[in-house]
Structures are given as C-alpha cells and as structure tokens.
C-alpha cells in the first residue's frame, strides 16, 4: 500500500514537469503531435524505470560511504560519493543507447519520428533528476523502482496532454510574440494549476 501510494504521488503530486520542471526541453520541443509525444513518453517511462533502480544499486553498493565493504575490510571507509554525477550520467547514456537500439529494431517508424530526440533523452533532466531525488530521499530498492516508473508515467501524462492541447492550438489566433514557446508556457502553467488539485491525495 505504501508503494502504491508512492506511485500515485510520483505521478500526480510530485509530477516531474509541474512540481520540479524537469525534462522541460524535450517537453516543449516534442509536444507538437500526440503520436510523437506518446512515443517519447514511452521511451522516458522505460529509461526512468530502468535507470533509477540501477542507479540505486550503484549508489548502495559502490558509491555510498562504506558501500565497498563487500570487497574487503580495507575498502570499508571509502566514500566515492563525489563520483555520483559521472557514474549516473554514464549509466543513463548507456541505457539510452540500449533503448535506441531496441526501438530501432522493433519500431523503425517510431525511430524515424523520434529522430534526434532519442539521444537527447540522455540529457533529459527528468532522468538524472529521478536518480538524484531518489538518493536525496533515501528510497529502498522497491520504492526506487516504483518511483522511477511512476515519475516516468507522470511525465508522459503531462507531455501527451500538452501535445493534445497544442494540436488544437493551431486553429487559434495567438499574438505574434507569444506564438510557440510563450503560449506553451502559459498552457503548462494552467495545467499545473489543474495538477495542484491532486495535492493531499492519499490512498
């Protein structure tokens, strides 16, 4: 039940986009069409769901103070936490490479439409942010997995919803200066207000 609660919380209340502004670059750039948005969203769920638990393992058994004790007593007081960023980003880059290969093999059309944005998942702050928050909040392995998948789904919800709004937006008369990025930010803000209504949900 705790885990389920955490999942719901990471999807709606601690939403990556509306609460922490993570992954905004691709959120704004790839949200012009619903189909592309779903594709990228799926990729993000997949990558987040894998990297957060993997990063948890690395943090727990390699980086943390005294984590290397399993290698032998002489390693017991090593603290490699300063390597955290480099390790995490390397793992993420490797996982993205993996997803890219899988997508290219099984869905060439999706691969074509995601194009340049697939490698960009590596620099999607939502992915690295997920891992860093996981460390900050001292999750267990199970919690980390749920949190990874949950925040991925939350991110996907946000981008799919935004792209649906933007598809309709083509037919409206927006002031010149606000076209594109400006109006998208305002819509995101309004959607953020809607997501605020989930605060306090607990199951």
């Amino acid at each position: 039940m705790e885990l389920f609660n955490l999942g719901i919380k990471s999807i709606f209340i601690d939403n990556m986009i509306f609460a922490y502004f993570l992954g905004m670059c691709s959120f704004l750039a790839v949200s012009k069409k619903v189909t592309t948005a779903i594709g990228l969203g799926t990729a993000v769920v997949f990558v987040l769901g894998i990297t957060v638990p993997v990063d948890w393992l690395v943090q727990e058994y390699v980086l943390k103070e005294g984590a290397l004790a399993w290698l032998g007593p002489q390693f017991a007081d090593l603290n490699l936490e300063f390597l955290q960023f480099i390790m995490f980003i390397a793992i993420i880059a490797a996982m993205v490479q993996l997803v890219e290969m899988v997508v290219e093999k099984f869905s060439p059309s999706l691969y074509g439409s995601l194009g340049i944005f697939l490698p960009l998942i590596a620099v999607n702050c939502a992915i690295l942010g997920g891992s860093l928050f996981m460390v900050q909040r001292d999750y267990t392995l199970a919690e980390a997995s749920v949190y990874g998948v949950g925040s991925g789904i939350g991110w996907m919800f946000a981008i799919v919803a935004l792209s649906a709004v933007r598809e309709k937006l083509k037919y409206s008369n927006v002031p010149d200066g606000l076209k594109g990025l400006g109006i998208t930010m305002i819509i995101t803000g309004l959607m953020g207000i809607a997501f605020k209504s989930f605060i306090g949900i607990a199951i």
Binding site: L181, T188, G189, L190, G192
Partner: peptide, 9 residues
C-alpha cells in the same frame, strides 16, 4: 511552479 511559467512566458 505556476508563477514561474507565467513570468517566463
């Protein structure tokens, strides 16, 4: 967060 979006917009 909403204020941030609006101000930046």
């Amino acid at each position: 967060s909403i204020g941030a979006f609006m101000v930046l917009a």
